[in-house]
């Protein structure tokens, strides 16, 4: 068979191109590794630590501010897995992350009791708010009673967009519906199974109502046509906790690294970094570690 066959040449070229791409990709990786080494002062390569967290802490930019300080000081490289609290808890239960920063306090405590997690600590809080259209057709503006406001939305059958994804925010929403004694059902109640940013966008487009953490709302406020209608209710308190998958069940996790990160988050330095983090001139998280 002739090897100068044009088809063979064509395939040689394809393979060549793909090989070049792979080699180039390898170089690209090498490049970032070198630059990572330049700013570290110690000789040891940083240890990897996987932090599973909720979209609200990562998407708001909080972790971008805090983690580099921790990484530099303790020589870790933190890989952030940003997902809903429901998914983060599941990933943690399976031992696929070294440490979790989530916000579903009741669920967290329950899982600690069941032996899935250890060393849980409060880190910080922010609050949930009920947002809706500026003209507020249901008329809940200024109320400090979230359950009553939810009830009114249900009575008027105004569009309400729910996370519907077992996230911390969704758990909170369900607890408020329960308090209101309403089982939300019907076309007006949209359970969409998406992240907070997506839900806010859908709510804004439809000029409906939803429950959101204040941080995500502030971060996206400029792009939304929504205002805060209900705030200040005790029931809207949003506690963030940090915890580790049980090392006895998951011996492979980086327990020392997880402990170091927890210590850092609850230390004076970590708490001050949280308090000092601002978006659009507003403080998003309030440290309250004990």
């Amino acid at each position: 068979m002739k090897t100068t066959n044009p088809w063979v040449r064509g395939w040689r070229l394809t393979v060549l191109v793909l090989l070049v791409l792979i080699v180039a990709a390898g170089c690209g990786q090498g490049g970032t590794l070198t630059s990572g080494g330049q700013d570290g002062t110690s000789q040891e390569p940083p240890q990897e630590l996987k932090l599973a967290t909720t979209t609200s802490t990562y998407d708001s930019g909080l972790l971008d501010e805090i983690l580099p300080v921790f990484e530099e000081k303790y020589n870790y490289r933190v890989s952030v897995l940003s997902m809903g609290t429901g998914a983060a808890l599941e990933v943690g239960k399976r031992g696929d992350a070294d440490v979790l920063l989530v916000h579903a306090k009741d669920k967290e405590r329950q899982l600690v009791q069941e032996g899935f997690f250890v060393d849980r600590q409060d880190v910080m809080y922010n609050d949930f708010v009920v947002v809706g259209p500026t003209d507020d057709p249901v008329g809940i503006k200024g109320s400090a009673d979230a359950a009553a406001a939810f009830q009114q939305v249900a009575e008027k059958e105004a569009v309400f967009v729910s996370r519907g994804d077992d996230s911390g925010t969704h758990s909170k929403e369900k607890s408020i519906w329960k308090k209101a004694g309403t089982n939300p059902q019907g076309n007006w109640y949209q359970s969409v199974g998406q992240g907070m940013g997506d839900v806010l966008r859908m709510t804004s487009e439809q000029q409906g109502y939803t429950l959101t953490d204040r941080g995500t709302y502030i971060a996206l406020r400029d792009k939304l046509n929504l205002v805060v209608l209900v705030e200040g209710d005790q029931a809207l308190f949003n506690q963030y906790g940090i915890m580790v998958p049980n090392p006895e069940k998951n011996p492979h996790i980086n327990y020392d690294g997880a402990t170091a990160l927890i210590q850092f988050f609850v230390s004076d330095e970590g708490q001050q970094l949280i308090a000092g983090f601002k978006q659009h001139g507003e403080q998003l998280f309030y440290p309250n570690a004990q």
Partner: peptide, 24 residues
């Protein structure tokens, strides 16, 4: 992949993240 910055982030997952962050 987990969309980890500098490690497993690709074009499409970066687009998802930026959309979620409101950086349209």
């Amino acid at each position: 992949g987990g969309n980890i910055e500098g490690k497993t982030r690709v074009m499409t997952s970066a687009i998802v993240l930026e959309t979620r962050r409101g950086n349209f």
